[in-house]
């Protein structure tokens, strides 16, 4: 459905996207996951034909997005980073405006947006500027859907939205996917990766890995130890100083400790910490998550770049 072929884009000296290739299949919910400045927005803007790639080509439903941008624009429903709504127009006015822009009407595709729009319909007379983050998000999604696009392109739709709304939003995307829409969505939140069929982890304009979230963890995940003790800061500095440590990072209440290969076991860890006067020590094996993988891949990538 969507193909990126060796796409590069730079702004002046800054290389925003370097030589990226990937494919999104039909009816897939595809996630671009990476921190701010990784190149997510640039990729999506090139996809919807708002930016031209410096090198490479992009196609959507068989159309080249540069040459055939009119066709592409009629197939795409796009929701930019900030919810681009007219703050001084009411919920209903926003929706009917965006419908009319695409030569459609609310009634025509109401069935498509109904499950989403119904939740904000009680406030349809309210100005968009007065809505909560979650409601703005739903309205913006309705506006992007109102012309029945084939591909839905969402740039950080869950940024600045509370946990409940985020959860509901992913449920909505699931339903849209079932309705046959191909969705490509970007997010800085690693924990949202599990909601996608496939994800690309991006960092500094490069794809670190691309696969189903499960396979990414399976392929790249390394064992680590969850460590906890009373004095957390001392625990970090002591473990960082230990010759057995490969890496140590705080993850919520625990530290994720990775040891050098062929290294120590649980007893040695505890012994080392006891030597350093730690109390209330906990140490157990942990299962890696997508964020652990991201950190590992980032570190590897940095090393590669330094070597190159």
């Amino acid at each position: 459905m969507i193909r990126f072929n060796n796409v590069s884009k730079s702004y002046g000296d800054v290389q925003a996207v370097s030589d990226i290739s990937f494919e999104v299949k039909e009816h897939e919910l595809f996630g671009l996951i990476g921190p701010d400045g990784a190149g997510k927005t640039t990729l999506l803007r090139m996809l919807v034909s708002l930016l031209l790639p410096d090198f490479g080509s992009i196609s959507l439903a068989g159309c080249n997005v540069v040459g055939n941008y009119r066709k592409v624009r009629s197939l795409v429903g796009y929701m930019p980073g900030r919810f681009s709504l007219y703050q001084d127009l009411s919920v209903e006015e926003n929706l009917s405006f965006f419908a009319s822009v695409f030569g459609s009407s609310i009634a025509e595709n109401y069935h498509l947006i109904e499950p989403i729009y119904k939740q904000i319909e009680p406030f349809r007379k309210r100005r968009a500027g007065k809505l909560s983050g979650g409601m703005k998000q739903k309205l913006a999604l309705s506006c992007a859907l109102i012309h029945k696009p084939v591909v839905l392109v969402l740039d950080e739709p869950t940024t600045g939205v509370d946990a409940v709304s985020r959860h509901e939003f992913w449920d909505m995307l699931d339903n849209l996917k079932k309705a046959g829409i191909t969705i490509i969505v970007s997010t800085p939140y690693m924990d949202e990766a599990s909601r996608c069929d496939r994800v690309a982890l991006i960092q500094q304009g490069c794809i670190l890995s691309i696969d189903t979230p499960g396979s990414i963890v399976q392929t790249h995940g390394k064992q680590h130890w969850n460590i906890k003790a009373r004095e957390r800061y001392k625990l970090i500095t002591d473990l960082e100083a230990w010759e057995q440590t490969a890496s140590v990072y705080p993850f919520g209440q625990y530290l994720h400790l990775k040891l050098k290969s062929g290294g120590a076991g649980r007893n040695e860890i505890i012994a080392y910490l006891k030597r350093n006067n730690h109390e209330q020590i906990e140490a157990c094996e942990g299962t890696p998550g997508i964020e652990d993988v991201f950190i590992d891949l980032m570190t590897e990538n940095d090393k590669k770049q330094i070597e190159a």
Binding site: L50, S74, M79, R82, S84, Q87, V101, F102
Partner: peptide, 13 residues
């Protein structure tokens, strides 16, 4: 500034 221009540009207008 609002970002709505992005959406208008991507529309068939």
């Amino acid at each position: 500034e609002l970002g709505t221009m992005e959406v208008l540009l991507v529309s068939p207008l």
